[in-house]
């Protein structure tokens, strides 16, 4: 009789345990449905660029936006309030880290002055440098074109058009950016090698606005060509020569809509443009891979092209210079 009772109790316990397991299983099933939406972790990434002109970064942003749609990224794209202020950019960098960003892509406004701030940031979050492939911080991942090569190839293209013995002015601004200083260095070296005279036009504090300064410089100095090594300065050169017509040839590096338009119009003779779409997309890809798989950050070289008015509309150039926007 006692044995029967024990047997019955055991049976009840087994049934209860089975029901409990069933309930847990159903809960797990329910949970899995809930988790289905949440299971992919999202990464908060900040992109800090120099300059106040957001349009200048349109191509980069297109690439970043494509990456945002391909990868689980919550993006914070930050431009500066003032041009070329290293302190301001340093503060932005700190603010982003404090606000909990998980990775940073930064186009540094002043390579040397930002070096320490970037080193500090790297200890907290992965950092990749945009536009820069120089030696600054050997251990820092960089994504950008070979700036020395850009300068070299631009010089060679100019040489073909100008021949030798020309006087060429380089807008010697923003040299604190390693990318521009590298471009300038190689450009000047090759142009000099070709037998050209190179002059530097540097606007001093208290001078006129950049475009007026350039206009005055063109009027006061007899030069055959003017070269600007970034979008900002190239646009200033365009503004300087636009209204009154010009006799100097203009060369430059950049790819804003305005620059491309003036290349199309013939104001700019030859243009070097970097595939910033790729730079934006790949920088995000590298950071996400690092965050997701803990893989090491790596350097990535970005391609660039030389374009003039004649080949602006060839298939490859128009695809890169005219983003498809609805």
């Amino acid at each position: 009789m006692e044995e029967n009772k024990n047997f019955g109790k055991r049976k009840v316990i087994i049934i209860l345990i089975t029901i409990c397991i069933g309930v847990i299983a159903f809960s797990a099933l329910g949970m899995s449905n809930c988790l289905e939406v949440k299971n992919e972790q999202r990464y908060r990434i900040s992109v800090i660029v120099y300059g106040t002109n957001e349009e200048r970064w349109n191509n980069l942003k297109e690439g970043i936006n494509q990456a945002v749609s391909d990868y689980p990224i919550d993006l914070n794209f930050v431009t500066m309030y003032e041009d070329s202020e290293a302190e301001a950019q340093e503060l932005l960098l700190q603010r982003e880290i404090e606000s909990g960003t998980q990775a940073i892509a930064i186009a540094s406004s002043d390579s040397q002055r930002m070096e320490q701030a970037i080193e500090d940031a790297k200890r907290k979050v992965p950092v990749i440098l945009l536009e820069d492939t120089t030696n600054m911080g050997e251990n820092t991942a960089k994504i950008g074109p070979d700036n020395g090569k850009i300068g070299e190839e631009l010089a060679q293209a100019m040489g073909k058009e100008l021949g030798t013995g020309s006087t060429i002015a380089i807008i010697y601004e923003n040299m604190e950016r390693e990318s521009i200083s590298q471009r300038s260095k190689e450009l000047e070296r090759i142009l000099t090698q070709m037998g050209n005279k190179v002059v530097h036009w540097t606007r001093r504090a208290g001078d006129f606005s950049p475009s007026v300064f350039i206009k005055k410089s063109i009027e006061e100095n007899s030069v055959d060509a003017v070269v600007a090594l970034d979008d900002y300065n190239l646009e200033n050169v365009i503004d300087a020569v636009d209204k009154d017509g010009h006799s100097v040839k203009i060369y430059g590096i950049g790819n804003t809509e305005k620059i491309v338009h003036y290349l199309d119009e013939g104001t700019v003779d030859t243009l070097v443009f970097v595939n910033e779409y790729n730079m934006g997309y790949l920088s995000m890809k590298i950071l996400v891979e690092n965050l997701r798989n803990n893989t090491a950050l790596y350097n990535q070289e970005i391609k660039y092209s030389i374009v003039n008015r004649k080949d602006l509309y060839n298939k490859d150039n128009q695809r890169l210079l005219f983003p498809i926007v609805e």
């Binding site: 690439g63 494509q66 595939n275 779409y277 790729n278 790949l282 490859d316 890169l320 498809i324």
Partner: peptide, 8 residues
């Protein structure tokens, strides 16, 4: 399309 044009 942009990725294809950029060879990515």
């Amino acid at each position: 399309q942009e990725l294809i044009y950029s060879n990515l």
